[in-house]
Protein backbone atom coordinates (compact mmCIF):
# COMPACT_ATOMS: atom_id res chain seq x y z
CA UNK A 1 0.00 0.00 0.00
CA UNK A 2 2.82 2.40 0.81
CA UNK A 3 4.30 1.77 -2.63
CA UNK A 4 0.97 2.56 -4.28
CA UNK A 5 0.64 5.76 -2.28
CA UNK A 6 4.20 6.73 -3.10
CA UNK A 7 3.68 6.28 -6.82
CA UNK A 8 0.39 8.19 -6.59
CA UNK A 9 2.28 11.13 -5.13
CA UNK A 10 0.81 10.91 -1.63
CA UNK A 11 4.16 10.44 0.02
CA UNK A 12 7.60 11.53 -0.95
CA UNK A 13 11.28 11.27 -0.22
CA UNK A 14 12.98 8.08 0.81
CA UNK A 15 10.66 5.28 1.80
CA UNK A 16 12.12 1.93 2.79
CA UNK A 17 9.70 -0.97 3.03
CA UNK A 18 9.96 -3.97 5.26
CA UNK A 19 8.27 -6.70 3.21
CA UNK A 20 9.99 -10.02 3.80
CA UNK A 21 11.46 -9.20 7.18
CA UNK A 22 8.23 -9.38 9.22
CA UNK A 23 9.34 -12.45 11.16
CA UNK A 24 12.06 -10.40 12.86
CA UNK A 25 9.87 -7.50 13.90
CA UNK A 26 7.04 -9.68 15.13
CA UNK A 27 9.30 -12.33 16.63
CA UNK A 28 10.99 -9.77 18.85
CA UNK A 29 8.66 -6.87 19.46
CA UNK A 30 5.60 -8.90 20.35
CA UNK A 31 7.49 -10.15 23.41
CA UNK A 32 8.01 -6.63 24.76
CA UNK A 33 6.13 -4.66 27.40
CA UNK A 34 4.98 -1.12 26.67
CA UNK A 35 7.79 0.30 28.84
CA UNK A 36 10.44 -1.56 26.87
CA UNK A 37 12.06 0.52 24.15
CA UNK A 38 12.61 -0.06 20.47
CA UNK A 39 15.14 1.80 18.34
CA UNK A 40 14.88 1.36 14.60
CA UNK A 41 16.37 2.75 11.42
CA UNK A 42 14.84 4.30 8.33
CA UNK A 43 13.14 0.91 7.70
CA UNK A 44 10.88 1.54 10.68
CA UNK A 45 7.23 1.46 9.65
CA UNK A 46 6.64 -2.14 10.76
CA UNK A 47 8.72 -1.75 13.91
CA UNK A 48 6.41 1.13 14.81
CA UNK A 49 3.26 -0.88 14.06
CA UNK A 50 4.58 -3.91 15.97
CA UNK A 51 5.31 -1.74 19.01
CA UNK A 52 1.74 -0.47 18.96
CA UNK A 53 1.79 2.79 17.02
CA UNK A 54 -1.66 2.96 15.33
CA UNK A 55 -1.73 2.46 11.55
CA UNK A 56 -3.47 5.83 11.20
CA UNK A 57 -0.59 7.61 12.96
CA UNK A 58 2.02 5.85 10.81
CA UNK A 59 0.21 6.46 7.51
CA UNK A 60 -0.55 10.08 8.40
CA UNK A 61 3.12 10.65 9.16
CA UNK A 62 3.99 9.22 5.74
CA UNK A 63 1.46 11.63 4.22
CA UNK A 64 3.10 14.48 6.17
CA UNK A 65 -0.08 15.28 8.05
CA UNK A 66 -0.53 16.86 11.51
CA UNK A 67 -2.17 13.61 12.64
CA UNK A 68 1.06 11.74 11.96
CA UNK A 69 2.86 10.23 14.92
CA UNK A 70 5.42 13.06 14.62
CA UNK A 71 2.99 15.72 13.38
CA UNK A 72 4.38 15.33 9.86
CA UNK A 73 7.80 16.61 11.01
CA UNK A 74 9.65 13.29 10.96
CA UNK A 75 8.40 11.33 7.99
CA UNK A 76 9.13 7.77 6.95
CA UNK A 77 12.66 7.60 8.35
CA UNK A 78 11.89 9.27 11.70
CA UNK A 79 9.00 7.46 13.35
CA UNK A 80 8.80 8.16 17.11
CA UNK A 81 6.30 7.39 19.81
CA UNK A 82 6.84 8.39 23.40
CA UNK A 83 3.70 6.53 24.44
CA UNK A 84 4.96 3.27 22.93
CA UNK A 85 8.64 3.93 23.67
CA UNK A 86 9.61 3.86 20.04
CA UNK A 87 12.76 5.93 20.44
CA UNK A 88 12.99 6.58 16.77
CA UNK A 89 13.68 5.72 13.26
CA UNK A 90 17.15 6.94 12.42
CA UNK A 91 18.20 7.86 8.91
CA UNK A 92 21.98 7.58 9.24
CA UNK A 93 23.56 4.18 9.46
CA UNK A 94 24.40 3.24 13.03
CA UNK A 95 23.31 6.46 14.73
CA UNK A 96 20.39 4.80 16.52
CA UNK A 97 22.50 2.17 18.26
CA UNK A 98 24.09 4.57 20.77
CA UNK A 99 20.66 6.01 21.52
CA UNK A 100 19.40 2.49 22.24
CA UNK A 101 22.45 1.86 24.40
CA UNK A 102 21.60 5.04 26.31
CA UNK A 103 18.02 3.90 26.88
CA UNK A 104 19.36 0.63 28.25
CA UNK A 105 21.72 2.62 30.46
CA UNK A 106 18.75 4.54 31.86
CA UNK A 107 17.12 1.24 32.84
CA UNK A 108 20.23 0.17 34.76
CA UNK A 109 20.62 3.67 36.25
CA UNK A 110 17.02 3.69 37.44
CA UNK A 111 17.48 0.34 39.13
CA UNK A 112 20.89 0.95 40.68
CA UNK A 113 21.03 4.70 41.30
CA UNK A 114 17.42 5.79 41.57
CA UNK A 115 16.63 2.57 43.46
CA UNK A 116 13.59 1.71 41.30
CA UNK A 117 13.93 -1.97 42.10
CA UNK A 118 11.29 -3.18 39.67
CA UNK A 119 12.75 -1.30 36.70
CA UNK A 120 13.76 -4.01 34.25
CA UNK A 121 13.05 -2.26 30.97
CA UNK A 122 14.78 -3.78 27.96
CA UNK A 123 15.79 -2.00 24.77
CA UNK A 124 15.94 -3.54 21.32
CA UNK A 125 18.17 -1.99 18.68
CA UNK A 126 17.31 -3.00 15.13
CA UNK A 127 19.74 -2.42 12.27
CA UNK A 128 21.08 -4.12 9.19
CA UNK A 129 24.14 -5.93 7.91
CA UNK A 130 25.54 -2.73 6.41
CA UNK A 131 25.60 -1.16 9.87
CA UNK A 132 27.74 -3.95 11.23
CA UNK A 133 30.80 -2.36 9.64
CA UNK A 134 30.16 1.03 11.26
CA UNK A 135 32.09 2.25 14.28
CA UNK A 136 29.05 2.91 16.42
CA UNK A 137 28.13 -0.79 16.22
CA UNK A 138 31.44 -1.93 17.68
CA UNK A 139 31.65 0.91 20.16
CA UNK A 140 28.21 0.05 21.55
CA UNK A 141 28.78 -3.70 21.69
CA UNK A 142 31.77 -2.95 23.91
CA UNK A 143 29.97 -0.52 26.21
CA UNK A 144 26.83 -2.67 26.50
CA UNK A 145 28.86 -5.70 27.53
CA UNK A 146 31.12 -3.61 29.75
CA UNK A 147 28.19 -2.36 31.84
CA UNK A 148 25.91 -5.36 31.31
CA UNK A 149 23.21 -3.18 29.80
CA UNK A 150 19.71 -4.61 29.18
CA UNK A 151 19.80 -4.41 25.39
CA UNK A 152 19.47 -6.80 22.48
CA UNK A 153 21.26 -5.92 19.24
CA UNK A 154 19.05 -7.29 16.50
CA UNK A 155 20.79 -7.49 13.13
CA UNK A 156 18.37 -7.77 10.23
CA UNK A 157 20.92 -9.29 7.87
CA UNK A 158 19.07 -8.96 4.57
CA UNK A 159 22.35 -9.58 2.72
CA UNK A 160 22.38 -6.20 0.95
CA UNK A 161 23.27 -2.63 1.83
CA UNK A 162 21.57 -0.94 -1.14
CA UNK A 163 23.79 -2.36 -3.89
CA UNK A 164 26.62 -3.62 -1.71
CA UNK A 165 26.45 -7.29 -0.98
CA UNK A 166 27.26 -8.12 2.63
CA UNK A 167 29.87 -10.57 1.36
CA UNK A 168 31.71 -7.85 -0.55
CA UNK A 169 31.67 -5.47 2.41
CA UNK A 170 32.57 -7.69 5.30
CA UNK A 171 35.76 -9.59 5.96
CA UNK A 172 34.04 -12.07 8.25
CA UNK A 173 30.41 -12.07 7.19
CA UNK A 174 29.24 -14.17 10.13
CA UNK A 175 28.03 -11.22 12.20
CA UNK A 176 26.81 -13.20 15.21
CA UNK A 177 30.40 -14.35 15.83
CA UNK A 178 31.27 -10.74 16.72
CA UNK A 179 29.17 -10.94 19.88
CA UNK A 180 31.54 -13.16 21.86
CA UNK A 181 34.45 -10.98 20.70
CA UNK A 182 32.80 -8.22 22.79
CA UNK A 183 31.78 -10.38 25.72
CA UNK A 184 28.20 -11.26 24.85
CA UNK A 185 26.45 -14.25 23.32
CA UNK A 186 26.08 -14.13 19.52
CA UNK A 187 23.22 -16.09 17.99
CA UNK A 188 22.31 -16.72 14.35
CA UNK A 189 18.68 -17.42 13.54
CA UNK A 190 16.55 -17.94 10.46
CA UNK A 191 14.98 -14.53 10.12
CA UNK A 192 12.26 -15.87 7.84
CA UNK A 193 10.73 -18.03 10.57
CA UNK A 194 8.84 -16.05 13.19
CA UNK A 195 8.64 -18.95 15.65
CA UNK A 196 12.38 -19.50 15.56
CA UNK A 197 13.01 -15.78 15.91
CA UNK A 198 10.58 -15.64 18.82
CA UNK A 199 12.39 -18.45 20.59
CA UNK A 200 15.77 -16.74 20.31
CA UNK A 201 14.20 -13.40 21.22
CA UNK A 202 12.66 -14.84 24.38
CA UNK A 203 16.08 -15.98 25.57
CA UNK A 204 17.87 -12.74 24.67
CA UNK A 205 15.19 -10.47 26.16
CA UNK A 206 15.06 -12.68 29.25
CA UNK A 207 18.83 -12.37 29.68
CA UNK A 208 18.61 -8.62 29.46
CA UNK A 209 15.69 -8.41 31.84
CA UNK A 210 17.50 -10.55 34.42
CA UNK A 211 20.38 -8.09 34.27
CA UNK A 212 22.71 -10.61 32.68
CA UNK A 213 23.58 -8.18 29.92
CA UNK A 214 23.26 -7.80 26.16
CA UNK A 215 22.97 -10.29 23.32
CA UNK A 216 23.79 -10.00 19.61
CA UNK A 217 21.25 -11.75 17.44
CA UNK A 218 21.82 -12.05 13.70
CA UNK A 219 18.60 -12.74 11.85
CA UNK A 220 19.21 -13.90 8.29
CA UNK A 221 16.33 -12.39 6.38
CA UNK A 222 15.59 -10.70 3.06
CA UNK A 223 13.82 -7.61 1.74
CA UNK A 224 11.45 -8.46 -1.10
CA UNK A 225 11.66 -4.95 -2.53
CA UNK A 226 14.55 -2.63 -3.34
CA UNK A 227 16.43 -0.70 -0.68
CA UNK A 228 13.88 2.07 -1.01
CA UNK A 229 11.08 2.83 -3.44
CA UNK A 230 13.59 4.79 -5.49
CA UNK A 231 15.97 1.81 -5.85
CA UNK A 232 15.78 0.11 -9.27
CA UNK A 233 17.01 -3.10 -7.54
CA UNK A 234 18.88 -4.40 -10.58
CA UNK A 235 21.85 -5.97 -8.82
CA UNK A 236 20.23 -8.70 -6.82
CA UNK A 237 20.09 -12.05 -8.61
CA UNK A 238 16.53 -13.12 -9.50
CA UNK A 239 17.30 -16.63 -8.28
CA UNK A 240 18.21 -15.27 -4.85
CA UNK A 241 15.02 -13.23 -4.79
CA UNK A 242 12.99 -16.29 -5.76
CA UNK A 243 14.69 -18.42 -3.10
CA UNK A 244 13.65 -16.06 -0.31
CA UNK A 245 10.25 -15.29 -1.82
CA UNK A 246 9.51 -18.97 -1.52
CA UNK A 247 10.19 -18.64 2.22
CA UNK A 248 7.86 -15.68 2.78
CA UNK A 249 7.47 -15.59 6.58
CA UNK A 250 3.78 -14.78 6.47
CA UNK A 251 2.94 -17.58 4.07
CA UNK A 252 5.11 -19.93 6.10
CA UNK A 253 3.27 -19.06 9.32
CA UNK A 254 -0.08 -19.46 7.60
CA UNK A 255 0.92 -22.93 6.44
CA UNK A 256 2.13 -23.81 9.96
CA UNK A 257 -1.11 -22.61 11.56
CA UNK A 258 -3.30 -24.61 9.20
CA UNK A 259 -1.17 -27.78 9.29
CA UNK A 260 -1.28 -27.72 13.07
CA UNK A 261 -5.00 -26.76 12.99
CA UNK A 262 -4.29 -23.72 15.10
CA UNK A 263 -6.42 -21.66 12.71
CA UNK A 264 -8.73 -22.38 9.83
CA UNK A 265 -8.60 -20.88 6.33
CA UNK A 266 -11.69 -18.92 7.30
CA UNK A 267 -10.02 -17.49 10.39
CA UNK A 268 -7.02 -16.35 8.36
CA UNK A 269 -9.23 -14.90 5.63
CA UNK A 270 -11.08 -12.94 8.30
CA UNK A 271 -7.79 -11.60 9.60
CA UNK A 272 -6.69 -10.63 6.08
CA UNK A 273 -9.98 -8.84 5.57
CA UNK A 274 -9.66 -6.99 8.88
CA UNK A 275 -6.13 -5.92 8.06
CA UNK A 276 -7.21 -4.67 4.64
CA UNK A 277 -9.86 -2.59 6.38
CA UNK A 278 -7.32 -1.19 8.83
CA UNK A 279 -5.02 -0.22 5.98
CA UNK A 280 -7.83 1.29 3.90
CA UNK A 281 -9.01 3.22 6.93
CA UNK A 282 -5.49 4.42 7.63
CA UNK A 283 -5.10 5.69 4.07
CA UNK A 284 -8.48 7.39 4.13
CA UNK A 285 -7.75 8.95 7.52
CA UNK A 286 -4.35 10.13 6.37
CA UNK A 287 -5.74 11.50 3.14
CA UNK A 288 -8.43 13.50 4.92
CA UNK A 289 -6.13 14.73 7.67
CA UNK A 290 -4.98 18.35 7.55
CA UNK A 291 -1.54 19.36 6.39
CA UNK A 292 0.52 21.31 8.92
CA UNK A 293 -0.05 25.05 8.80
CA UNK A 294 2.82 27.49 8.71
CA UNK A 295 2.37 28.21 12.41
CA UNK A 296 3.69 24.74 13.16
CA UNK A 297 7.02 25.51 11.53
CA UNK A 298 8.80 26.83 14.60
CA UNK A 299 7.17 24.53 17.12
CA UNK A 300 9.38 21.78 18.55
CA UNK A 301 12.66 23.38 17.48
CA UNK A 302 13.33 23.88 21.18
CA UNK A 303 11.71 22.15 24.13
CA UNK A 304 12.15 25.51 25.89
CA UNK A 305 11.44 28.28 23.32
CA UNK A 306 13.70 30.64 25.31
CA UNK A 307 16.32 28.92 23.18
CA UNK A 308 15.38 31.34 20.38
CA UNK A 309 16.93 34.02 22.53
CA UNK A 310 16.25 37.59 23.61
CA UNK A 311 15.12 40.01 20.91
CA UNK A 312 16.12 43.64 20.36
CA UNK A 313 13.14 44.75 22.46
CA UNK A 314 14.34 42.85 25.51
CA UNK A 315 11.57 40.27 25.35
CA UNK A 316 12.15 36.66 24.50
CA UNK A 317 11.83 36.36 20.74
CA UNK A 318 9.44 33.44 21.10
CA UNK A 319 6.89 35.90 22.52
CA UNK A 320 6.85 37.65 19.16
CA UNK A 321 3.55 36.79 17.39
CA UNK A 322 5.56 35.98 14.24
CA UNK A 323 6.64 32.87 16.09
CA UNK A 324 3.13 31.56 16.40
CA UNK A 325 2.55 32.40 12.74
CA UNK A 326 5.76 30.53 11.89
CA UNK A 327 6.97 33.53 9.89
CA UNK A 328 9.63 34.76 12.31
CA UNK A 329 13.14 34.78 10.91
CA UNK A 330 15.08 32.36 13.05
Amino acid sequence: MCAQMYYRGKMFGFVHLYNGQEAVSTGFIKLLKQQDSVVSTYRDHVHALSKGVPARAVMSELFGKTTGCCRGQGGSMHMFSREHNLLGGFAFIGEGIPVATGAAFTSKYKREVLKEADCDHVTLAFFGDGTCNNGQFFECLNMAALWKLPIVFVVENNLWAIGMSHLRATSDPQIYKKGPAFGMPGIHVDGMDVLKVREVAKEAIGRARRGEGPTLVECETYRFRGHSLADPDELRDPAEKAHYAARDPITALKKYLIENSLASEADLKAIDKKIDEVVEDAVEFADESPVPSQSQLLENVFADPKGFGIGPDGRYRCEDPKFTEGTAHV
Binding site: C70, Q73, G74, G75, R82, E299, N300, V301
Partner: peptide, 8 residues
Protein backbone atom coordinates in the same frame (compact mmCIF):
# COMPACT_ATOMS: atom_id res chain seq x y z
CA UNK B 1 13.06 16.94 19.43
CA UNK B 2 11.76 18.32 16.13
CA UNK B 3 11.68 15.13 14.07
CA UNK B 4 9.84 13.39 16.89
CA UNK B 5 7.17 16.07 16.72
CA UNK B 6 8.17 17.31 20.18
CA UNK B 7 7.67 13.94 21.86
CA UNK B 8 11.22 13.57 23.14
Amino acid sequence: HYTSGGQF
